[in-house]
Design a protein around this nucleic acid. Structure first.
Lengths: 212, 212
DNA sequence: CGATTAAACAAACAAGCGTTTGTTTCTAAA
DNA sequence: TTTAGAAACAAACGCTTGTTTGTTTAATCG
């Protein structure tokens, strides 16, 4: 046996990527064997090297591509001139929805940073900071415009990202709540938290009705 | 050479544990070599087996002990009959403070679940659920008593735990903000989020002044 | 002091790892 | 129909891994 009938490189490459994402998300990068990966794709171990440079590079590719796609998708969805409260709701919606449909990539991007070489890690951390910077911008705009109560925007950004990303780790589509339900709950948690009323004061959150 | 002068088993065991926690937190369980671990403790690889049954068991011990200590510490700090809002503040305070001083164990407990054998994983997940159940109980009490706006307590529990635990991954004592600052910010985020005002309504958070 | 046990070493083990090399088979353009 | 290149195999490479075994030295206790 050698070349299998009907095999096409582009398809094999995608199959490798998909299987790799699955295996890394399930067992971790270090625990995934190239032999294991090859078997899942129906190849011999050595054949993988027609499609990857090295095992490390495979991880880098997966992570970097995911982060770049994520950032681009958000920027296409955002309306930078809109009301910060609406933008924030949009961010929560986008983040959770996007992360639901790429749950495995998200798990990898969040757990496997330490498996990267220092250079690659720096690059991926940079991309992550870029994405977080988008949320931070919204928070700062909202604070400046008086919609959110003043707080350290960096800390708040981290806290919110942690909360929203955490969803990927425990959410199951088989649960009783739909994605929409979960998004709604998180919108309330986030927006409520930011308008965090200093102890004992009254608080009003006026927001144009009629939009989801 | 054989037995080194002044060596005591109990101390060696602690040194192994400490080094293991450090290495696993930094590089991941699979990436940590027993040879690497041995070197950090100043032993030969084989000598480690006087103190551990197997590499897997070492991880199980670290994780289980951490979770059990965490639960016990919280139960000692909680006042189950107090106002749910105070208990919630107490939980935020406890969780962050405790996790700050055990940052590495927390990282392990959250990242290495998948490196456990199915049995061990079930056990650790059970312990985690027990801990989360404590927070959930507070939320439900608060909702029942009308202090928190009704929501799915399970989802809210997960969201809050994600947010609070996330701190361990990005917090650095060298930052400009103290632990107290960060705790205060998170208290606001959590309590504010739970009193999440339905759109456009007014909201009051009366809480006994004078405490922290 | 002498015997026993605790604590470590030294050396190897089989298995598995990522990766390379050379070859074989299929596909497609000439 | 011949031929160049694409896609895979088969087999091995050197190395590292977790772990075991037998031995040696230090401490302890009667």
């Amino acid at each position: 046996m050698a070349r299998t009938r009907g095999s096409v490189g582009a398809e094999t490459e995608k199959a490798i990527r998909k299987a790799a994402v699955e295996l890394i998300a399930k067992h971790g990068f270090e625990a995934m064997t190239l032999r294991d990966l090859a078997e899942h794709v129906g190849l011999q171990p050595g054949s993988i090297y027609r499609y990857i440079a090295t095992k490390d590079q495979l991880l880098v590719d997966i992570m970097a591509e995911h982060m770049e796609t994520l950032i681009a998708a958000w920027r296409a969805a955002d309306r930078p001139d809109a009301d910060p409260r609406l933008r924030l709701e949009g961010f929560v919606d986008f983040h959770i929805r996007y992360h639901f449909q790429r749950q495995k990539e998200v798990v990898i991007a969040n757990l496997e940073l330490r498996s990267l070489t220092p250079d690659a890690r720096r690059a991926c951390v940079g991309l992550r900071k870029t994405y977080e910077g988008e949320l931070r911008g919204i928070l700062e705009a909202g604070i400046t415009q008086g919609f959110f109560s003043p707080t350290d925007s960096g800390i708040a950004t981290n806290a919110i990202i942690s909360m929203l990303t955490g969803v990927c780790f425990w959410y199951s589509p088989k649960g009783k709540l739909s994605a929409d339900d979960i998004i709604a709950i998180h919108k309330r948690l986030v927006l409520g938290g930011l308008s965090g009323t200093p102890r004992g004061e009254a608080k009003i959150i006026p927001l144009a009705a009629g939009r989801n």
